[in-house]
Design a protein around this nucleic acid. Structure first.
Length: 924
RNA sequence: GCCCUAAUGGUGGAAUGGUAGACACGAGGGACUUAAAAUCCCUUGGCCAUUGCGGCCGUGUGGGUUCGAGUCCCACUUUGGGCACCA
């Protein structure tokens, strides 16, 4: 029998399917293990060879864990709501559901060819009403909750209402948009609308006027993680700052817990660091500055309370509420003009334009510690959304304040000994404090760090401020003015938003005639005529953002067909949370924050039993494309080989990698590739046209996309799987180069040759030799530890070595070959299944075999060879019997005739015998 | 600017502080074959020597610790990623 992947692979995939080999159920007898891939957004372009990298790794790990006896949950589904399908719908009029389903079908057929062990009975799609019912349900839970800092978790909003009725807002310690103050009587006197508005200040899912990222080109708002450098991540369109009345999720309430619980997670340090940066905790002080001749008090946030004696001006954000409160009549016109001018600029323009700008309000603040009169300015370098939107400026020790002071010629007072502030500010938090003394506070002579702590303590005692922690993490904006997303389970009754009762879910996405906003500027759902409750109340017209459906999908996989709950208590308590999550690092500040938040809300409310969703997370690297270039001599149709290109004036042109092999261009195919190259001429080197190459993103425009279907067709799924893993460490980015794939394909053929020579079956009942067992057990040891460390490339190298050794030993032992197959099964499931049945003679699947344990006895050596060095330089080798004591090795090394030469006239200072077969003799 | 990550042959990459370059690709040579494909064998970091051994240099740069450093420490250069008028 010859190895023929085209015959073997479809046969076994069909067998796995027919016999439901990968179906999993709760089994209290066995330990669970949950392995999850980040589910894909099914784009129109289909999968390229980079996409399955993480899926192959998780598949190997799943199969390995199963062989070790775990009950492995390994599901797959689709993140099916998203902008591309909707934009395609706008252009073509085709319903996004149709395109999405077509794309899913294509993804599925591509995934099916790679031999994954997913339990497809658990497949989910975020756009399926059976699924988004639970996304809507979760929203209702958040709407009906508020975050209590006293309880340290989310509580039902009904508790808060009961409290308001009895004692009003006095003494509240809860997460809110802005602190409110009202009595029980005031609460009870409120209208329904006023009560609703008030509660929005506390709900976890709330409607609020917030500064949003508005993308006019996309016609929707975007979350912070969907915007980078002032443009939308999808499409790269400009984004403006705008205040809008939107649904939001109070993620900020969880900032501290999201930060603290990172400690318990087995994630890479860099990913945790990225999340810490995103959460952006900063400890400081909030201080009050009175405005001279006014009742207004400016509240500011600072991490450098110690520099309060260096404050020479205050700055307000243009959007700050204080601006209107403090501006003097004389300055009003100038301030208004400045505020309007900033409003007109997009965030991007503000960022690009680093010129210092600002305007004086005419007001003065009083420094609470020394009574100094300080001018109050407005400038756009202060952000409205962070802290209080107002700062105390200390130009001597903050570079931004410094630039402002220099520009407007404001005084600069140095506060740290030896700091030269004539050219630039001194921002470092170290040194001895000077110039900082008043009746209320004396910091002179202290170290900066002491001074910060001491100042915080004093301002609290003096009642002019308090210690405060600020987070950069903002609430998530949850409305999108789009069609292709989950509808909110919300309707408006006399202008008051109400949520649907849970038994009315799912609220289905209605049909519309066009996927564009209405003529009156409402979102596309405004086109759905009569989209109202039975009582005639209008539903919310926005839909939920992309991250809504992906935030709790790992829970639904545990119990995907449950009609009564997101996940049953039984399923949740068995599967608990994800043991291993594999996916790209690009979700670090989006999905991986939202999921953790979402899970914590459900955890607080008692719906799930684990506070964190993903225990261990591995980020697979990107697979980059490897592009090829030809070099055209300018203004000709002559192409010059890469080695000679420097002799001419050339333009590099991307060339389709399918007509290039090992960087050698097929010139005939090149001429046929494009009409304009029909009469191309070539300057060759050694009779060949050598192409240049570059590592770039895999994309159609660079003609470097490699389709996994083509690889499977030519070499088989097993070869593809092995090669993707062999390419390099999983976490690392690396270029795809199809040329190397022959190596892993040859390996499979060599493996096959251990079992069959032509049609002759080689496997016998022969007793394994000592060498056979040694090769095998070396492999068991190596592969087991490599899989645990996700070092798949080195385990494949170990397989290659082992197969070579067994082949040289002419090993035919069924016992040895059988174990070899089990070890290889996670990596190459098809060929091992075939040999397991046809050559070894089993009639049950290899997936149910048991992972072998290694026996250290087989790994012992008869003799050990030491490299003997003098002062670290290798000089000769020494062979001694295994188990020789350290002292005897030492004696043998010194008495060896080779040693005499190196010891000549020198004395031995030390002899170091290391277990890894090194003897180092230190002489001097 | 701050934080994180990396840097090893022609290429992808191996190396618990212990003989750097495993494994694979590519390249060169050879066997088999009418021929090709496939398969197998040898060589393959650089320089020198080579009908025998062998020698020197080598893991981004400069220092340090150590009997011994790709690996640990300090400084720097470059790559990739994150955060960024966040006070």
């Amino acid at each position: 029998m010859q190895y023929n992947h085209k015959e073997i692979e479809p046969k076994w995939r069909q067998y796995w399917k027919d016999n439901r080999i990968y179906k999993v159920d709760i089994d209290s007898e066995r330990k669970k293990f949950y392995v999850l891939d980040m589910f894909p957004y099914p784009s129109g372009a289909g999968l390229h060879v980079g996409h399955p990298l993480g899926y192959i790794a998780s598949d190997i790990y799943s199969r390995y864990k199963r062989l070790q006896g775990f009950n492995v949950l390994h599901p797959m589904g689709y993140d099916a709501y998203g902008l591309p399908a909707e934009q395609y719908a706008i252009q073509t009029g085709q319903h996004p559901e149709k395109t999405t389903n077509e794309n899913i079908a294509r993804y599925r057929s591509q995934l099916d060819k790679i031999g994954f062990c997913y339990d497809w009975d658990r497949e989910i799609r975020t756009c399926d009403p059976e699924y988004y019912k639970w996304t809507q349900w979760a929203f209702i839970q958040m709407f009906n909750s508020y975050y209590s800092y006293d309880a340290g978790k989310v509580r039902p909003i009904s508790e808060l209402i009961a409290r308001f009725e009895k004692q009003g807002a006095a003494g509240l310690n809860v997460a809110c948009s802005k602190p409110l103050d009202f009595t029980a009587d005031q609460w009870n006197a409120m209208t329904a609308k006023e009560k609703s508005d008030t509660l929005m200040n506390y709900r976890v899912a709330y409607l609020g006027n917030t500064m949003v990222n508005w993308c006019p080109k996309l016609g929707t708002v975007l979350a912070n993680d969907e915007v980078s450098e002032g443009v939308s991540l999808r499409g790269g369109y400009p984004v403006e700052q705008k205040v809008m009345y939107q649904w939001c999720l109070r993620v900020s309430a969880y900032a501290q817990r999201l930060l603290d619980d990172l400690e318990s997670l087995d994630w890479t340090d860099s990913l945790k660091e990225t999340q810490r940066n995103w959460i952006g905790r900063s400890e400081g002080a909030e201080m009050k500055f009175k405005i001279a001749d006014s009742d207004v008090e400016l509240e500011i946030f600072t991490t450098r309370a110690d520099t309060v004696f260096g404050v020479t001006f205050m700055v307000l954000a243009p959007e700050s509420k204080y601006v209107g409160m403090v501006t003097t009549p004389g300055q009003k016109a100038a301030v208004d003009e400045y505020v309007q001018a900033t409003k007109r600029k997009t965030e991007r323009e503000r960022m690009i334009d680093k010129k210092v700008s600002g305007v004086f309000t005419g007001a003065y603040a009083i420094n609470p510690l020394n009574g100094a009169r300080i001018p109050v300015w407005v400038s756009d370098y202060v952000l409205a959304g962070y802290g209080t939107g107002a700062i105390m400026a200390v130009p001597a020790h903050d570079s931004r304040d410094y630039a402002f002071a220099k520009h407007f010629d404001l005084p600069i007072i140095p506060l740290i000994e030896g700091a030269d502030v004539s050219e630039e500010s001194y921002d470092a938090k170290e040194g001895i404090v000077i110039n900082s003394k008043s009746d209320l506070l004396d910091l002179n002579g202290m170290q900066v760090k002491e001074a910060i702590a001491y100042t915080k303590k004093r301002i609290k005692e003096l009642g002019i401020g308090e210690v405060k922690v600020n987070y950069r993490l903002r609430d998530a904006i949850f409305s999108r003015q789009r069609y292709w997303g989950e509808p909110f389970p919300v309707y408006y009754k006399d202008g008051i938003p109400e949520v649907l009762s849970e038994d009315k879910l799912p609220l289905l996405l209605p049909e519309v005639d066009k996927f564009l906003p209405t003529e009156t500027g409402e979102p596309p759902l405004g086109r759905a005529a009569g989209w109202k409750t039975e009582d005639g109340y209008q539903f919310e017209l926005c839909t939920m953002p992309g991250f809504a459906g992906s935030s709790a999908y790992y829970l639904r996989y545990m119990d995907p067909h449950n009609q009564d709950a997101l996940v049953s208590k039984e399923a949740d308590e068995y599967w608990r949370n994800v043991d291993l999550y594999i996916g790209g690092t690009e979700h670090a500040t989006g999905h991986l924050i939202y999921s953790r938040f979402w899970n914590k809300v459900l955890f607080d409310l008692g719906h799930v039993c684990e506070p964190e969703p993903f225990k261990k997370l591995v980020n697979q690297g990107m697979i980059q494309g490897r592009s090829n270039f030809v070099y055209r001599i300018k203004d000709t149709n002559t192409f010059v080989s890469a080695g000679l290109k420097d002799q001419y004036d050339v333009t590099p042109i991307h060339v389709d990698i399918n007509i290039v092999s090992n960087d050698i261009l097929d010139t005939e195919k090149f001429k046929a590739w494009r009409p304009e190259f029909n009469d191309a001429e070539f300057v060759l080197e050694d009779g060949k046209y050598v192409c240049g190459y570059a590592v770039e993103k895999m994309s159609k425009s660079m003609f470097n996309v490699v389709n996994p279907d083509d690889i499977v067709d030519r070499y088989g799924a097993d070869t593809l799987r092995l090669y993707e893993m062999f390419l390099g460490p999983l976490e690392q980015s690396k270029p795809w180069d199809t040329n190397g794939i022959d190596g892993t394909n040859r390996f499979i053929k060599k493996l096959w040759a251990l079992f069959y020579k032509g049609d002759e079956l080689l496997v016998t009942d022969a007793e394994p030799t000592k060498d056979n067992l040694k090769s095998l057990h070396k492999l068991i040891k190596k592969v087991t530890s490599d899989i645990e460390n996700f070092s798949f490339n080195t385990s494949i190298a170990a397989f290659m070595i082992c197969v070579n050794e067994l082949s040289q030993q002419k090993c035919t032992s069924r016992l040895v070959l059988e174990q070899l197959l089990i070890l290889l099964a996670p990596f190459a499931p098809h060929v091992t299944e075939e040999l397991w049945h046809s050559a070894i003679g089993h009639d049950t699947t290899i997936c149910d075999a048991a992972w072998p344990a290694y026996n250290e006895d087989y790994l012992k050596e008869d003799s050990v060879t030491y490299a003997v060095s003098f002062n670290g330089k290798a000089r000769f080798t020494l062979q001694v019997a295994a188990g020789t004591s350290k002292e005897d090795v030492e004696a043998a090394a010194l008495s060896n005739e080779g040693a005499a030469k190196w010891l000549d006239g020198k004395s031995v200072k030390k002899v170091i015998v290391v277990p890894n077969k090194i003897v180092n003799i230190v002489v001097g």
